[in-house]
Simulated scan of single mutants.
Amino acid sequence: MQWIPTPLLVAASAFWTIEPLGLGGRGLACAILIVVNSLTLAVRHVPESKISPRLTLIWLTFGVLAAAALISVSTGGVSYLFAYFIVGHIGFRLQPRAALTLAALCAVLCTVVLYFRFGPQDLLPWTLGFTTGIPVLIGMLNRSRHRAVMAALDAAESAERAALAEAQAAILTERGRIARDVHDVLAHSLAGINMQLELADALLDTGDLEKVREANQKAHSMVKESLKQAQWTVHALREDALPLVESLTAMLDSSGHRDALTVTGTVRDVPSRVTQNLLRIAQEALTNAARHAPGGEVAVELTYTDTSMTLAVRNGPATRRVNAGVGSGMGLIGMRERVALLKGTITAGPVVTGPYEGGWQVEAVIPG
């Protein structure tokens, strides 16, 4: 069954039951007042934003007068229904003070009309007039509930907008992370491979096949190193990646630096994003050590404290000829960006004392 608007039901009941109805005298007055009251109720379906508060007050006041007038001229039927429904809508549309005032006015008018019509000896009819003001409380309750629902919807929309903005920020962050990963894995290696291939091409004209072969072998070794780094990048991005200590150990073993990791403090689980970023920092530091200090000793220290964790990568001076080529200069920038995402700090510079004097060190401190 389709929903039938309340004003239509009340109007139909009024035309069916109210007496007298006709084309003249009181019958015509009743018909006109039924139409006026029906139109007053029909406006209740117009959104609040379309009618100003002042116009709403005037319209409902006019409706109260029309409802009381209909009760005064009719001799039977459900004329009082208009008063009940109009007063109920008064409680929904108006502020509490204005609603209660207008509802009291309706109750007084209906009581006075019925009092003078039936006399003081017949208590039931004119006492019933007081009850026409009661629906204002129902209207006020519905108003409060409606406001609560609208507030909840506004809050939900705000939360949705915030979630969308957060998702967009996360996308931008992820793009930055992918850009750093692409750089860390490919930029250095491809630049070195390109340099060696250009060198081999240039040496072909000299006929020095030994140097051509050497450049070609270096390019091959760089390709193998790039593949190894790509594998570690995929490993770091996987959800089922190993814990940080095990991952660092495997990374050092695969790069030829067995037993180079020292762990201090109580090992604990850390979020996956911390593990991924620290692995990439360690990978970049080891790549730079292999490029700028080939043959140099490498040491990695992972220190856990109650409030932070520290990753330090140190390498000694080169023991073989350095042929690093021209780097992009983005390696340290990428490491700083990763540490900034974790709200930590990073320092990088030459080692001036100790067994690694003359080498390089990178130290990242992450809170938590």
Rank of each mutant, 00 (worst) to 15 (best):
residue 335 M to H: 03
residue 322 V to T: 14
residue 362 V to Y: 01
residue 298 V to E: 05
residue 319 T to P: 00
residue 335 M to T: 10
residue 356 Y to D: 09
residue 365 V to L: 07
residue 333 I to W: 04
residue 321 R to P: 00
residue 292 H to D: 13
residue 339 V to D: 04
residue 368 G to F: 06
residue 340 A to V: 14
residue 320 R to E: 15
residue 309 M to P: 00
residue 365 V to C: 04
residue 320 R to F: 06
residue 366 I to P: 01
residue 363 E to K: 15
residue 320 R to W: 05
residue 331 G to W: 00
residue 340 A to E: 15
residue 330 M to R: 14
residue 326 V to E: 13
residue 313 V to E: 06
residue 292 H to T: 14
residue 308 S to I: 04
residue 337 E to C: 02
residue 342 L to I: 10
residue 342 L to G: 08
residue 360 W to Y: 11
residue 323 N to T: 15
residue 364 A to P: 03
residue 361 Q to E: 13
residue 334 G to Y: 06
residue 359 G to V: 07
residue 334 G to S: 13
residue 333 I to V: 12
residue 300 V to C: 02
residue 340 A to S: 14
residue 362 V to G: 01
residue 328 S to E: 09
residue 363 E to F: 00
residue 334 G to E: 05
residue 308 S to T: 12
residue 294 P to R: 14
residue 336 R to C: 01
residue 316 G to K: 09
residue 353 T to A: 07
residue 306 D to M: 03
residue 311 L to R: 07
residue 346 I to G: 03
residue 315 N to C: 04
residue 364 A to E: 02
residue 313 V to F: 01
residue 354 G to Q: 10
residue 323 N to C: 12
residue 341 L to G: 10
residue 344 G to L: 13
residue 335 M to I: 12
residue 309 M to L: 13
residue 361 Q to P: 00
residue 297 E to C: 01
residue 294 P to L: 11
residue 351 V to A: 03
residue 329 G to M: 05
residue 326 V to H: 12
residue 313 V to Y: 01
residue 365 V to Y: 01
residue 304 Y to P: 00
residue 327 G to T: 14
residue 339 V to P: 01
residue 298 V to Q: 07
residue 314 R to E: 09
residue 298 V to R: 11
residue 306 D to N: 11
residue 350 P to A: 03
residue 320 R to T: 15
residue 356 Y to C: 01
residue 292 H to S: 06
residue 365 V to W: 01
residue 301 E to V: 08
residue 341 L to H: 13
residue 338 R to H: 05
residue 321 R to L: 11
residue 305 T to Q: 04
residue 355 P to M: 08
residue 332 L to K: 05
residue 333 I to T: 12
residue 339 V to Q: 04
residue 306 D to S: 11
residue 343 K to H: 15
residue 337 E to Q: 13
residue 337 E to Y: 08
residue 316 G to F: 02
residue 344 G to K: 15
residue 295 G to R: 06
residue 366 I to S: 03
residue 358 G to I: 04
residue 349 G to Q: 08
residue 315 N to E: 08
residue 336 R to V: 03
residue 363 E to L: 10
residue 304 Y to T: 10
residue 355 P to H: 09
residue 360 W to P: 00
residue 324 A to H: 13
residue 319 T to E: 09
residue 298 V to F: 02
residue 333 I to G: 00
residue 344 G to T: 14
residue 351 V to Y: 03
residue 296 G to E: 12
residue 339 V to T: 09
residue 367 P to G: 12
residue 330 M to Y: 09
residue 320 R to M: 11
residue 347 T to K: 10
residue 309 M to V: 05
residue 346 I to V: 08
residue 359 G to I: 07
residue 342 L to D: 09
residue 303 T to P: 00
residue 300 V to P: 00
residue 353 T to D: 13
residue 320 R to L: 12
residue 304 Y to A: 04
residue 355 P to T: 13
residue 310 T to I: 12
residue 327 G to A: 12
residue 346 I to M: 08
residue 366 I to V: 10
residue 296 G to Y: 08
residue 325 G to T: 07
residue 342 L to Y: 10
residue 343 K to D: 15
residue 340 A to Q: 15
residue 299 A to D: 06
residue 357 E to K: 15
residue 318 A to D: 06
residue 292 H to V: 11
residue 302 L to S: 06
residue 341 L to T: 15
residue 358 G to T: 06
residue 312 A to W: 02
residue 358 G to H: 05
residue 354 G to L: 06
residue 320 R to V: 13
residue 312 A to I: 12
residue 308 S to H: 05
residue 321 R to I: 10
residue 353 T to S: 06
residue 304 Y to Q: 08
residue 334 G to R: 02
residue 327 G to F: 08
residue 346 I to K: 07
residue 312 A to E: 15
